[in-house]
Design a protein around this nucleic acid. Structure first.
Lengths: 122, 122
DNA sequence: TGATCATATGAGCAATCTTTCATATTTAAG
DNA sequence: CTTAAATATGAAAGATTGCTCATATGATCA
């Protein structure tokens, strides 16, 4: 992908700060890495999913347990569990009719804690 | 807020797992905390904002520097900086016409690193 | 004061997301 | 084999989001 326009947003101050920008530019991680990072955080960016992750951090649970716990429909929870599974944040195992979900990543709690640190600082 | 329906999603397996759910329920943080946590991660959940935060982690920069660096319009960057500022992730200082932005939270890098840990595990 | 640069902001559009509703799938039990 | 329980999924509605475009604000300089 090429830069759309060389002069677009090339304002005077950019020329002044050219060396700063040129120093940072090569340090930027690949586009894809930053995109994937954003995609991951997007998964954390919904309160339903946050609640599910929080609950699963305490206990392995089946779909309807979570639905009851969060007072939401089974369908809504099922959809969100799918998102969480695609993001490899939860895994599941089937036991007869029941599908048990649990966390698939030990970083979840740490990510939560980092987030809480920020929220608490007021 | 009251539970919408006592019997909604109160399936058989919930009765079986009643003790598990009842053990987790009182441990759940307040609704508002989990909501705020999700709101914070939502801010991280956009690749433009991730790129901005990454850049600002390297260097303090003005709006048009960032716009040039990310090859985006000044307006788009300005809108996103507003979001980042409201989330208290960046701060700014004015120097004449130019407004310099920088990180306002030392956890940003840690949150990124946690996220990267998850992404890299394949 | 007028012109210009840097930034901010409001309206609007297209895209995305979350939930609901209806229905399909999978498994066990009768 | 039929029925029911637990879960999954597709379509669609309603809400939210990110960007663009036009314009406003704030600051410097002639």
């Amino acid at each position: 992908m090429t830069r759309k326009a060389q002069e677009l947003d090339r304002c005077d101050c950019q020329v002044i700060h050219e060396d700063i920008v040129n120093q940072v530019l090569p340090q930027m991680p690949p586009e894809e890495t930053l995109y994937d990072l954003a995609e991951l955080f997007k998964v954390f960016g919904d309160s339903t999913r946050v609640k599910i992750l929080w609950a699963l951090d305490k206990e392995e649970m089946c779909v309807c347990d979570i639905a009851y716990l969060l007072n939401m429909t089974q369908s809504a929870i099922s959809h969100q569990l799918r998102v969480l599974k695609q993001a490899k944040l939860v895994k599941n195992r089937r036991e007869g009719k029941i599908v048990y979900y649990s966390l698939d990543d030990e970083h979840v709690r740490q990510i939560f804690e980092m987030g809480l640190c920020h929220i608490m600082e007021e």
